[in-house]
Design a protein around this nucleic acid. Structure first.
Lengths: 230, 230
DNA sequence: TAGATTGTTAATCGATTAACAATC
DNA sequence: TAGATTGTTAATCGATTAACAATC
């Protein structure tokens, strides 16, 4: 379809892509959306990098893992590169996801517009609390964990979000694995272990919070030793 | 006080600690809490590493940035190491934080127990929506952004959480900087830029979600090129 | 003492950056 | 054509792992 796509579009099948590269792909996509809104038709690796605080070489290297998308002397065509990245990330499709845990955090995630914008649609809700089972949130009935496997299969769900308390997280993960889940986004502040073939991405607020605390509490080993000066 | 603390407890003042090391410190702390609950008095670097899926050398190296906490032949004393890490992370103190943006996500964060458990206490709420200003959430009055500087100073707040829409994030960040904030935890899916001296930790759900999508959509460059084979 | 385990230095691995021929 | 910018290889940088003398 697009010119760049016609060209050599994949590296060797066994090339390993660093996680950091995939994370930056999301940032490129976000910046491309902004550029498109502003009416820019092309962008160079150095412009893209400058906006995100990374080098131009990094931008080109990241994209280079997936193919050739640019035009020497010109740069990248904004709409075309956006489409290509969306395809790489798999966000050019709709992903139905299951949300396990309809507590405080779970309900907030359910109301989070960003999910739908990114092509993720919560298609099933689960909770272990009998008082919550049967209630309706955002139009979806809360199901008990027993029917996990059946519901996932019926609704073609391959992704799950865990938003349960830390001590319940591993148990839920195990049940999701049995129900043949393929990827888990874990919000519980817990280290969970999974078989190789199930992908895990963790959003650990505790860790992030402690990072920040560390940074402002002093941040250097010396400061940690010096103690309460001030 | 404790024996380990008496010994050489800090590296050279200019040693740079990798962010990844700080993140792992949080995981060590979490595992130590579990061990303590189970009644373990000591733990070795290899036990700690095995529980978290990292090498024993990594554990010792991470701790080595901050001092000597172990006992050759024995390992680490669980309560003592826990205390030491809490001190390094700065979570042995209470941190009052400001929460900007009392929407869906903001209110969920407000109700999140994990914050308080980690020593963070939301001590001020802000929102730009006049309809929300003056309302009370969890016992705290929502203030307008105009009074940011005064309220932060009055309540001794050095940390802020941004939970506003993406297009408002940079503006809020700028106002926080003017109000002399020292660290920001940003939940808005936006790249924000700050002066050097203000610390930033981002929790970017979009990026995490796209990571997961990438992993299950294929994950390899080849899969991205192969297209819809399923 | 013998066995276990630390703290730390050296070796390895992987990711970022620089450089530049090829291309528009 | 001259100027700009890519894709990619080589050089650099930083983080992880291995190894081992010192210590309990």
């Amino acid at each position: 379809m697009s010119r760049a796509r016609d060209r050599n579009t994949h590296a060797a099948a066994d090339t390993v892509v660093p996680r950091a590269t995939v994370a930056r792909l999301s940032l490129y996509l976000r910046q491309l959306a902004r550029l498109l809104r502003q009416g820019n038709q092309t962008v160079s690796s150095s412009q893209l990098g400058r906006a995100l605080g990374i080098t131009d070489a990094q931008v080109r290297k990241d994209l280079g893992y997936f193919g050739q998308f640019g035009y020497p002397g010109i740069g990248y065509r904004v709409p075309e590169l956006g489409e290509a990245i969306r395809h790489i990330l798999g966000t050019d499709r709709a992903w139905p996801v299951a949300l396990v845990g309809v507590g405080n955090l779970g309900r907030a995630l359910l109301g989070y517009r960003g999910f739908r914008e990114q092509g993720f649609q919560v298609a099933a809700l689960f909770d272990s609390d009998p008082a919550k089972v049967g209630t309706i949130c955002e139009g979806i009935r809360v199901e008990p964990l027993d029917v996990l496997a059946r519901v996932l299969a019926e609704r073609g769900i391959r992704l799950a979000i865990i938003a349960v308390p830390a001590d319940a997280a591993q148990g839920v993960a195990d049940r999701l694995v049995v129900a043949r889940i393929q990827g888990i986004l874990n919000f519980a502040p817990a280290t969970i272990s999974l078989p190789e073939h199930v992908h895990l991405v963790g959003v650990d607020l505790t860790v992030q919070l402690e990072q920040l605390s560390f940074l402002i509490a002093g941040g250097s080993p010396a400061a940690a030793a010096e103690d309460d000066g001030s």
